[in-house]
Design a protein around this nucleic acid. Structure first.
Length: 347
DNA sequence: GGGAAGCACCGCCAAA
DNA sequence: CATTTGGCGGTGCTTC
């Protein structure tokens, strides 16, 4: 074996058992279907695999599908799966069920058999989770009703329309509500897996896995920062007009009513269209615009925080601080310090 | 840090 | 008849 993982990454300390992790292994069951997105499966799989090096094989990993056998992913690569409900969830208790996503057009109209399997699987499992558009399958199975959930930002409005009872938040990397976990698009599945691992062990293990995968341990902020959805033109002219309008006068008061006026829509309709186009609600998007405008100036470290807060429309530094924590996960001071460190390494 | 006021959001229904 | 739009009012969050 030329590429021995234990040699390459090194075996680390074995953690003492926690309340959740006992001597037996935790069975992680991945559900896939024809056309599933390979990375939705392989990302989390890789995270759990690496976690096994840190935990002496705490996880047993199984890929299942409705009928079992070969399943072709959206990119054409075939995966071999076990039949769902046989070995996977019946004989050995399924600890965590993770549903992969796929192209949006495939996510509707799942067979009744699949939905029934998901319902029983989720009911028996300690946790159920979805990656990306996998949330649509959980939604159709009725497992997300009344819960907070996220999905790929492009599909958030569609999910909300499909199941009004879900509280869809498109600006999160992942969300846990009770035993149900959902995650944002594609690579957010890795963040989800890291969070599940941290839930089972502790932050040391998940941090170690993140380092081995060369990803952020706790990716900060919401998914919109990666979609660049406030920079790229939203599909409708009117929403773009409103965003341009807002960006040009961030320092002024920008209530939803005023944005709606700029878009020449009624406030109600504006809010509806805005969410459909961007996956965010208007006020939150403005808040993000301000935070982003402030961020580089904060990191530059040339102006007092109070002046920046005023210049971008936060009014006072405390509101800016709250907003930074919401969007970036850390207060302005911390980013300013990080900016200073970064400059030092270059000089 | 608790409580009131204001605002954002959203479900619902009616009108276009 | 279906879809889009606008208004109303309840609710929950933020701000002061």
């Amino acid at each position: 074996m030329a590429f021995g993982a234990s040699v390459f990454w090194g075996k680390r300390h074995c953690h003492p058992c926690t309340s959740v992790v006992s001597a037996m292994s935790l069975h992680i069951v991945f559900f896939v279907f024809p056309g599933f997105a390979l990375l939705d499966l392989s990302g989390p799989l890789c995270a759990f695999e690496l976690a096994n090096y840190d935990s002496s094989g705490a996880y047993r990993l199984t890929v299942v599908s409705e009928t079992g056998g070969p399943v072709v992913s959206s990119c054409g690569v075939t995966i071999l799966s076990e039949p769902f409900g046989h070995d996977a969830c019946a004989h050995e208790a399924c600890d965590t069920l993770i549903v992969s996503g796929g192209p949006p057009h495939l996510m509707r109209g799942a067979s009744e058999k699949t939905l029934a399997l998901l319902r029983t699987g989720a009911a028996q499992a300690r946790r159920a989770a979805s990656v990306c558009t996998g949330a649509f399958l959980l939604a159709e199975a009725g497992l997300l009703d009344g819960k907070r959930a996220t999905t790929h930002w492009r599909c958030a409005a569609q999910l909300q329309a499909l199941r009004p009872a879900i509280r869809v938040d498109a600006d999160r990397i992942f969300i846990q509500d009770g035993k149900i976990w959902t995650s944002a698009g594609v690579t957010a599945g890795v963040d989800l897996a890291l969070a599940l691992i941290e839930n089972d062990f502790d932050a040391d293990v998940s941090r170690s896995v993140a380092r081995n995968m060369v990803v952020y341990h706790r990716r900060q902020g919401g998914q919109s920062q990666f979609s660049a959805l406030l920079d790229l033109d939203p599909p409708t002219d009117r929403i773009r007009q409103a965003l341009t309008f807002a960006r040009e006068r961030l320092h002024e008061d920008l209530p939803v009513e005023r944005l709606a006026e700029a878009a020449r829509l009624s406030p109600r309709q504006f809010a509806r269209v805005f969410f459909a186009d961007t996956g965010q609600t208007p006020a939150r998007a403005i808040d993000r615009l301000r935070a982003e405008a402030a961020r580089s100036r904060v990191e530059d470290g040339l102006e007092p925080l109070e002046a920046i807060a005023r210049a971008v429309g936060f009014g006072d530094p405390e509101r800016m601080r709250q907003s930074f924590i919401r969007h970036f996960g850390q207060p302005p001071q911390a980013l300013r310090r990080a900016g200073r460190e970064w400059r030092k390494t270059r000089d």
